[in-house]
Amino acid sequence: MTITTSSPTRIAGRSRLAVVGLTAVTSVAWWVVLTKVFGIDLAAKQGSIIQVGAISVLVAAIAMAFAGWALLAILEHNTLAARRAWTITASICCVLSLGSPLSGGIGTGAKLGLASLHLLVGTVVILGLRRTALSTAARCTPSGISK
């Protein structure tokens, strides 16, 4: 057994932070396309009628990306098949999140637009964070030790 001093090839925090940034940028860009290019009024009824603006989209996208990051970190710490468990759990959450825009959106355009925002954020977070997940072998091998 030989102890090596090589540094890790992947820095999870930086890659995951890039996923958060990408999620924020793509969600706001899609909001601009929906509202400014297609002219869709993204209004929803949640108690009262609300207009879904760029700031709301940005904050929600960032919050969901960080929540996904936290869940993945917890699963990596507590389970062997974290990547698989996270992907399944996040996919189920993404599908279930469609209930809100499809039931609360005012008008077909708003319902479809809000649902597309949910799917966009979900897809970027799921695929992006899945890519950063450490494999079981990488987590189960003591770092710095090679055979």
Rank of each mutant, 00 (worst) to 15 (best):
S27Y: 05
A29L: 06
A24D: 07
T9C: 12
G99S: 09
A65G: 03
S7E: 06
I49Y: 10
S15F: 13
S146F: 13
I145E: 14
S135L: 15
V25I: 08
A81Q: 10
V32I: 09
W86Q: 06
S91E: 04
V20M: 02
H77K: 14
G39T: 02
R84P: 12
I62L: 11
I74G: 07
W86D: 02
T87G: 09
L42F: 03
E76H: 03
N78L: 10
M1R: 14
T26V: 08
E76K: 05
T2M: 09
T79A: 13
V32T: 06
V37E: 03
T79Y: 00
V25C: 12
A43I: 00
G99D: 01
S15P: 14
K147D: 15
I40H: 04
V20F: 01
L114P: 00
V37R: 09
G53I: 10
R139M: 14
S143K: 14
V19T: 01
A54Y: 10
L71H: 06
L117W: 06
T123A: 15
S27P: 00
A43F: 06
I106K: 06
G39V: 04
A81M: 06
A67W: 13
V124E: 01
I11Y: 10
A133E: 06
A44K: 03
L119C: 07
G13C: 10
I49V: 12
R139E: 11
V57R: 02
R10N: 05
W86H: 10
A110V: 07
A60S: 15
S15Y: 13
R16Q: 07
T26I: 07
A137V: 08
W30G: 00
L22M: 11
R131M: 15
G68P: 01
V19W: 02
V124P: 01
L71E: 08
L17M: 10
S56H: 13
A61C: 05
V19K: 02
I145G: 14
I145F: 12
W31D: 00
L42H: 00
R16G: 03
T123D: 15
V32W: 04
W30T: 00
I3T: 15
K147Y: 11
V124W: 01
Q51G: 14
S6M: 09
V28G: 02
G99I: 13
A82L: 04
V28Q: 05
S103E: 07
G53S: 13
G99L: 09
R16P: 03
A24I: 05
P8H: 11
P8M: 08
L117T: 03
G39Q: 03
V33W: 01
V124I: 11
S146Y: 15
W30E: 00
A133I: 08
A85G: 08
E76M: 04
V59H: 15
A110E: 05
K45L: 11
A54F: 11
T35C: 04
R83M: 03
I74Q: 08
L34S: 04
I88T: 09
A81N: 07
T141V: 13
W31Y: 12
G68W: 01
V57P: 00
T4D: 05
G128T: 03
V125W: 00
N78V: 14
L120S: 06
A90K: 00
K111G: 06
R14M: 08
